[in-house]
Simulated assay, not measured.
Amino acid sequence: MMQMIRLANALEQAAAQDNWLKVRELDSQIALLLSELREASLSDGDLQRLALLRKQHASVLRRCQQRVEALRIRLENHQHQRAGRQAYSLFASEQE
């Protein structure tokens, strides 16, 4: 099941490049693989590769959550700045 190693590496690379569409695509492939493996008997090597895939997936999930939080904060800051600019604009127009 070298596919697990390939998916783990591709997932890590896509996340490192902030290629979230590719991450989503790979996540779907991983879900499909896991559903196929549900009924399979796995060798010790397969279990180790699966553990690596699980570890990479968890790492990418954390990175994704951190990125979402950073974007949320950035958007919130932009909204606050916009509100401040609008208030300043209203104040300046009243002064004229």
Score class of each variant (00 low, 15 high):
Q48C: 01
Q81F: 03
L71P: 00
L32E: 15
R38H: 08
R38E: 15
V23Q: 07
L75G: 06
Q48T: 08
W20A: 05
C64M: 13
I73D: 05
V68R: 10
R67I: 02
E36A: 07
E69N: 11
L50H: 08
S43F: 07
I30R: 06
L26N: 07
H80D: 01
R67N: 13
K55A: 14
R49C: 09
S41G: 03
L21K: 14
G84S: 11
G45C: 04
E25R: 11
S35N: 15
L21G: 05
R82N: 12
R72A: 13
I30G: 05
Q81A: 12
A70K: 13
V60Y: 09
R49Y: 11
A58Q: 13
Q79W: 02
Q65G: 00
R62S: 14
Q56N: 06
I30Q: 04
A70D: 13
H80A: 06
Q65V: 01
L52K: 09
I73H: 10
L53M: 03
L53N: 01
Q29E: 14
L50W: 07
G84I: 03
H80C: 03
L33P: 03
N77F: 00
R49Q: 15
A40R: 15
G84F: 03
Q81G: 00
Q29H: 05
E76R: 09
L75C: 05
I73F: 08
D44F: 00
G84W: 07
V23L: 09
N77C: 02
Q65E: 14
L75F: 06
Q56L: 01
K55E: 10
G45F: 02
Q65C: 01
S59D: 13
Q65Y: 02
L26G: 02
H57M: 07
H80V: 05
K22E: 15
L42W: 08
K22N: 05
L61G: 01
G45A: 13
D44P: 02
L42Y: 09
H78Y: 15
A40W: 08
K55V: 00
L26Y: 10
L71S: 04
R82F: 03
Q81K: 10
N77E: 10
Q56W: 00
L21P: 08
V68D: 07
L75Y: 07
E25S: 12
I73T: 09
E69C: 04
W20T: 07
V23H: 05
K55R: 15
V23I: 05
R82E: 09
L53R: 04
R62G: 01
L33R: 06
L21S: 11
V68K: 11
Q29F: 03
R72C: 06
S41D: 13
L53W: 02
I30V: 12
C64F: 12
S35A: 11
S59W: 09
S43C: 06
L42D: 05
V68H: 01
L61A: 11
L53G: 03
Q81P: 00
L50S: 09
C64L: 13
L32W: 09
S28D: 10
E39N: 11
A70S: 12
A31L: 06
